[in-house]
Simulated assay, not measured.
Amino acid sequence: MSIPQRLELRIRAAEQRVADTYGLTITEHRLTLSAPSVQVRVLTAGEGEPLVHINGISAPAMGMAPLIAGLPGFRHILIDLPGHSLAPPYMWQERTVRELAVGVLTGTLDALDIDRAACAGSSLGGLFTLWTMLDAPGRVSRAALVGTPATALPGSRGIAEMASLTSPIRGRLDQSLMQLPSPRFVARFALTEALGANATRAMSDDLLDLHRLPLRLPGQAASYRALLCRLMRGRTPRPENVLTDDELARIGTPALFVWGEHDVFSSPDQARPFVTKIPGARLTVVPGGHNPWFDDAPRCAALVRDFLAEPVRSTTEEGNYRT
């Protein structure tokens, strides 16, 4: 058996243990999209109205399992984006990242025969969701954005790892190092800068493996770096990936921003002036960092659950929907 085959078996075994831990029965789907021409891997769990989950860059779909466990009554659709986890590698070229992102999300919905769905996005997933809310507004019914939505809001900044990976020379070396075996404590330390010490301590070995092992599969580290280079220049988001005031004002979909008080990419105080520009949006601050469900899953789930249960009202009826 080859090394990639052994890695895939380890990843699948870790996924199953995470699913068992959080009481999820998972079904896997491989979808081939046409625009862009890519493959996505989708995991589904539960029954009810669809709720689409899109995780952060290089992160696995199953990483949101602690949050999903607190959201009963939905058909959960967990998307492993192209080049993530066990989805095939993809270099994110030929079109703008925004066009590719909207195409991936709407194409996945089309392939699953879903006209319109609520979305829960984290980091990169939050950015993809906001782009889709702008460019295909009929497809997203409401959105829970947990953590800084990547580069979407002005003022967000990258971390040292991103600056290193996007450099022409050091980035290639970092990409090579990601493909080498390493002990779990190294991966846990590496994630601490982005997620915070409390979150990484709380993360089980299986959840940690789902973050670290896929980068050793052929093409996945290169996919991660290629996408990061299209989003960032060093620690600074590329201007085309930051939403303007006009774009924020045009978002008509109800949105909840759940923001960790110690999110390293942008503080709640930095984000609030821009969230207030979005009709039908509100921002709630919670303890924790960039993925606050690792710090306090029940609290994050309760906020998302209550938001999804609220009656849908037009923004003209409700004014700005925020606290």
Rank of each mutant, 00 (worst) to 15 (best):
T253Y: 11
G46Q: 01
P149G: 03
A222N: 09
T25W: 14
G171Q: 05
L215I: 07
W92M: 02
P239S: 06
Q270T: 12
S204W: 15
L228G: 05
D174T: 13
G63C: 05
M91R: 05
V186R: 13
N241I: 03
L177I: 14
V52F: 10
S123D: 10
F128P: 13
V18R: 11
E240W: 13
T276L: 13
A281F: 10
S314H: 11
G125S: 08
L145K: 02
M91H: 02
M162P: 11
R139Y: 11
A160W: 15
P239N: 04
Y224N: 09
E310N: 08
S123H: 09
V104N: 09
R299D: 12
L195R: 04
E310R: 08
V102Y: 15
G288P: 08
A35R: 06
L31T: 06
P273F: 00
R188E: 12
Q93S: 05
E49I: 02
G107V: 01
S164P: 12
P268D: 07
Q93M: 00
R139Q: 14
V52R: 03
L24R: 03
G289D: 02
R230T: 02
S266I: 08
I26K: 10
T192Y: 08
F294D: 01
A120L: 10
V97Q: 02
A69I: 12
L86I: 09
E193R: 12
W92D: 03
G56E: 03
A13K: 11
A187T: 14
F74T: 01
T132M: 12
S266T: 04
I57G: 07
Y321P: 00
I77M: 01
R184C: 13
G155C: 13
Q220D: 05
T32C: 07
W259T: 05
G73H: 07
D295R: 00
M133I: 14
H262W: 07
L208W: 08
V264M: 08
A143Y: 00
P50D: 00
L145F: 05
D174N: 14
P273C: 02
L207S: 08
G319C: 09
A160E: 15
L43E: 07
M133W: 12
W92P: 06
L180H: 14
H211R: 06
N241A: 05
E310G: 10
D110I: 01
Y90H: 07
S176R: 11
L7V: 08
V312E: 15
I169S: 13
L208E: 07
L71N: 05
N320Q: 09
L177K: 15
N291H: 03
I114V: 07
H84C: 06
